[in-house]
Design a protein around this nucleic acid. Structure first.
Lengths: 148, 148
DNA sequence: ATGAATGCAAATTATTTGCACATCA
DNA sequence: TGATGTGCAAATAATTTGCATTCAT
């Protein structure tokens, strides 16, 4: 029986998609989706595991992947390449990563394709996708002065 | 005594920079730099280790980092985030990564800053850097037909 | 009932670290 | 001779995989 306790909208959408696409709706998936939905700041897979101790690590990863594939979660690579996860709304977007506090803001693709046009023409590449991450300091951290 | 056997230009420049910046010039560093210089395709740290078996893995990593810091080598993150290394010429550039054959072409920053201007204004971010990776199929792989 | 989902432990991949020893300057 | 660099083995971090078991449908 589905515990119809109120789910975050993201978790709710996820459950719906599961049904629509013929995946199974399990309590585990509900728990993971709910934990992800509650997050505001980027988190590590390990932190998510800690939040759902009853769920095995491998399963957490499997569901992280599922959430990503469905567009409910995205993986952000910090400057050193270490991964963080964050719930997402926008289908295609990029990230403003604050190197000071770790906050990540989404921003929609201005028009990268335009910029890439000459590059593509010269290289003969057939572009399938791209990843753009911008690093810097967020407004809040700049406010807190001190260039640390 | 420095084995003055002909070094690749990249390795040579590296050695010079070492001297200039007061780092030590060791046979290990020469070997690693030479191995890196000989590469045309992106490689893994492990592959580099295999190419200089007499050098310890930790030291290979330490020198990879040094080469990166000095701008002679850059780290490319593939679509899944797995890292590859590649000798580099340009100070600041981005990558065209062929998902079919793994080739990586550099391209210089057209003018991303222009594109980011509105984003920066709205977010209040102080941009310090960015990473842009474009994924697709290179001309050669497209030529080999078959949409695999 | 039956195939998809899960849990666990072990295996991988990519690096880093501590520390004793070697070596360039 | 010293600080810097190196080797090795163990430690970390982030996932993945095999396989037996459970559970949604």
């Amino acid at each position: 029986m589905a515990t119809t306790s109120s789910l975050h909208p993201l978790a709710d959408s996820f459950i719906n998609r599961l049904e629509v696409e013929g995946h199974r709706v399990t309590s585990t998936r509900r728990a993971v989706a709910q934990a992800v939905s509650g997050r505001t700041a980027p988190f590590t897979a390990e932190e998510l595991c800690d939040e759902v101790p009853r769920v095995g690590r491998a399963t957490v990863y499997r569901n992280i992947k599922l959430l990503q594939d469905m567009g409910f979660l995205c993986r952000v690579l910090l400057e050193d390449g270490s991964p963080r996860y964050q719930p997402s709304q926008h289908a295609h977007h990029h990230h403003l990563v604050c190197v000071s506090c770790g906050e990540v803001q989404d921003f929609v693709d201005c028009d990268l394709s335009e910029l890439l046009r000459p590059v593509v023409r010269e290289s003969g590449f057939e572009v399938a996708g791209h990843r753009l991450e911008v690093f810097g300091r967020c407004a809040r951290c700049r406010g807190r002065a001190s260039p640390n």
